[in-house]
């Protein structure tokens, strides 16, 4: 049962203007066909010669490069492989085949508030979430007040997180997330939540990233954001790149997928 593995290499090369390069990336998942997990099922399956899973090909050979300073939008239907691509870039999943080279320090946000625990207070959760982003206690101490001020939740610091509304949790998580600094940011649907005021804050944040020439990869369903912020967009369908280039054209092509 040896699985083939592609490579994901991290380099720090200031002379190259390539931030990410992906060559012939493949990924498939083994989806168990039986509901019951367990040893009994595994033994039965082996005896009967049943595989016990079906193979789902998610990414079928992607090739692309991202240059430093680009704001890339990755769009596509649900199940097209966008999030899988992002998770492979983030180093959460292993590439099955292909070569990925990442030049610089990459900070992924697959979800806001990773590691948030409802039984802990807001304060404790901020430190925990900060640690997951790589901030030490001392660094968090310095940012601590700014985080709460930006989230506009100062008076709830010592409440347990389970007493926060979901909107409040997202605001707090976002407020921590934007402190993270890296050469490349990966953002997955971070904007899908929150009220109008929060959406505005997100837009401001994106605007600031764009003016700073930060390398960003944004996975989104919002064509408005693609048109407004991206310098380039990539349309993925059924595990392959359908089109890549001008964000306006890609946004149009995306809308046409349904017509």
């Amino acid at each position: 049962m040896k699985r083939q593995i592609g490579t994901r290499t991290e380099i720090y090369d200031n002379n190259s203007n390539i931030a990410i390069s992906i060559k012939n990336l493949h990924k498939s998942f083994k989806l168990p066909t039986e509901q019951a997990f367990g040893l009994k099922q595994a033994i039965f399956n082996r005896l009967r010669g049943i595989k016990g899973y079906t193979e789902q090909k998610v990414l079928k050979g992607l090739d692309f490069e991202i240059k430093k300073g680009e704001f890339i939008g990755i769009v596509g239907r649900n199940g097209s492989g966008k999030s899988t691509l992002l998770k492979i870039l983030a180093g959460i999943y292993y590439p099955e085949k292909g070569e990925i080279t990442i030049n610089g320090n990459l900070v992924p946000f697959i979800e806001l508030g990773v590691g948030f625990n409802p039984e802990l207070t807001g304060r404790e959760n901020v430190y925990m979430n900060g640690a997951l982003l790589g901030f030490s206690n001392a660094e968090m101490d310095k940012m601590y007040n700014d985080i709460w001020k930006f989230a506009e939740l100062e008076q709830f610091q010592d409440q347990k997180l389970k007493n926060y509304s979901s909107g409040m949790q997202v605001r707090l998580a976002f407020s921590i997330a934007i402190r993270a600094k890296g050469d490349i940011l990966l953002l997955d649907e971070v904007l899908a939540v929150g009220d109008a005021a929060f959406q505005q804050k997100c837009a401001d944040y994106f605007e600031s990233l764009k003016t700073k020439n930060q390398t960003v990869i944004l996975v989104t369903h919002s064509m408005e954001n693609v048109r407004k912020f991206c310098t380039r967009a990539i349309l993925i369908d059924n595990g392959k790149i359908v089109q890549s280039g001008d964000p306006q054209k890609i946004a149009d092509a995306y809308t046409k997928l349904w017509s």
């Binding site: 625990n117 802990l120 404790e124 997951l132 790589g134 901030f135 030490s136």
Partner: peptide, 28 residues
């Protein structure tokens, strides 16, 4: 792949914070 990055700074922070949280939650 490669030698696992044994306790570098980031991993140390994470280990300390996770342990603290585990311990707190146990008797929450």
């Amino acid at each position: 792949m490669g030698i696992p990055r044994v306790l570098n700074r980031k991993n140390r922070i994470l280990l300390a914070e996770l342990t603290k949280t585990d311990f707190k939650l146990r008797y929450q």
